[in-house]
Design a protein around this nucleic acid. Structure first.
Lengths: 257, 257
DNA sequence: TAGTGGTCTAGACCACGAC
DNA sequence: TCGTGGTCTAGACCACTAT
């Protein structure tokens, strides 16, 4: 696949099939997917860009259109690409609609999906705690940014947020304050870091004094705590975010698969 | 597609393409998927059954193997089928491993995934409340079963559960008490009802007197409330389940997509 | 060795969007 | 009208499982 067309049944090489003798087998379309993902990571294909057509990619990579299609379909299923019949295939953008659908799962009980507004509280350099360093795969006590925000839905403050970012990957962040509402679009546009997926742990906790003051509720009020790790295209953890939400008239929407 | 091979470019009929003149277009592989799903709903293909090979299905339905494959792949992605290379394609079973992975998202913080044990508390016929009737798409005050259970992880009671079922679809349920731990396998085996997917709403709530007594915690303790609607293969709501969970040392694991 | 699903290719036509 | 992705077909070979 590296160059030229793949000849099958005629001395297939390890490089072509991706398998050494007896070793694991690596499908061509996954190799194609990796190659395309690398271009996105490297910044060659930024968010919003129109990709070459399937035919061009197939010719360029020396595989059939069907193989390119399988790679593109898989990446579109993971929201890394957006395919539009008649127009082409585009690198996914971290626009509000997508973020709202994929990452922000808190909804009013009536089913609407308003976009959350953010009020920055503080941004400061700090050292990673033990758990934070482990989750972000940083050295113990590595330098991090610590960002606090208050988020509101329909103008009502509902969520406190604490965000921890690796210092080294977000240089000169302090000069960019106040940070915008849509952080993931900001990471992509300014630092070239695309958030590809996230893992969340949910708990019910009692509001502490700070949460109670920020949200205007009583100390001890049950809050929904969402502990998120967000990963980049390269599968490295990029952000740790702890949100605590009032859920009297709102809920977290989940569709287990 | 109904019978014989599809001839393309030679007077394709509305039945073949699935589209009336100017109306929406319905891909063949979706029509195949519907046909296969109907066989599962009708009980012709029960859980665990080995399907005919792709070639046989293609011949039987008058489409190409590739079209059958696309339908089977889509159904496997939705956990309705399980494909095993070298062996064949099987109707998915509601076995513990799958249930644990797909539907039961509460985990100890250490990352293990023990299977939850259940203690039945009560089972009685009742009338649906207003909200319940709406969620289950029943007539107001329709008859329902009301089932309460206490669930434990590693022997520790952690979850109270209230389950509401449409009376008409679960006849003679009282004669089957005590109900087994794995209810979804029970629905499938006894009533021929397969749970295909679920939607969940999560909130943080304060423990009431009953929850506190059952879970051995203080009244007012924050609990994670999971409000689930489970749907059958026919997309009809089958079960409404409200769980309240202690999350001191456990969490609900979510992977937003 | 036979049979299954998995991958890969090649080519045709359809639906959609832009021009 | 053209170019794009979407669907459908046909056939070859590969990887895995059971016999």
């Amino acid at each position: 696949m590296v160059q030229g067309s793949v000849k099958r049944g005629a001395e297939p090489t390890a490089a072509e099939t991706g398998s050494g003798a007896g070793l694991g087998f690596r499908p061509l379309y996954l190799q194609v997917r990796e190659k395309l993902t690398e271009r996105m990571i490297g910044g060659l294909w930024p968010p919003g860009m129109l990709l070459p057509s399937e035919q061009r990619l197939a010719a360029e990579l020396g595989v059939s259109q069907g193989t390119v299609r399988k790679a593109l379909d898989a990446m579109a299923a993971d929201h890394l690409l957006v395919r539009r019949q008649g127009r082409g295939t585009f690198v996914a953008e971290q626009e509000e609609g997508r973020i709202l659908f994929q990452f922000f799962r808190l909804r009013p009980d009536d089913g609407r999906a308003p976009f959350p507004e953010s009020t920055p509280i503080s941004l400061r350099p700090d050292r990673a705690g033990e758990e934070e360093a482990e989750l972000l795969r940083l050295a113990p006590r590595a330098r991090v940014w610590r960002l606090q925000r208050l988020r509101a839905l329909d103008g009502v403050p509902l969520i406190t947020e604490e965000i921890v970012l690796p210092f080294e990957r977000f240089r000169r962040l302090e000069k960019m304050a106040p940070l915008p509402n849509n952080l993931y679009a900001f990471y992509a546009g300014v630092f070239g870091i695309t958030i590809a997926r996230a893992e969340e742990r949910l708990k019910a906790v009692a509001a502490g004094p700070e949460d109670a003051a920020a949200l205007g509720c009583l100390k001890g009020t049950p809050l929904l705590e969402v502990d998120r790790i967000a990963f980049g295209l390269d599968e490295k953890p990029v952000e740790r975010r702890i949100s605590r939400c009032l859920t009297d008239a709102h809920h977290y929407s989940s569709t287990p698969r």
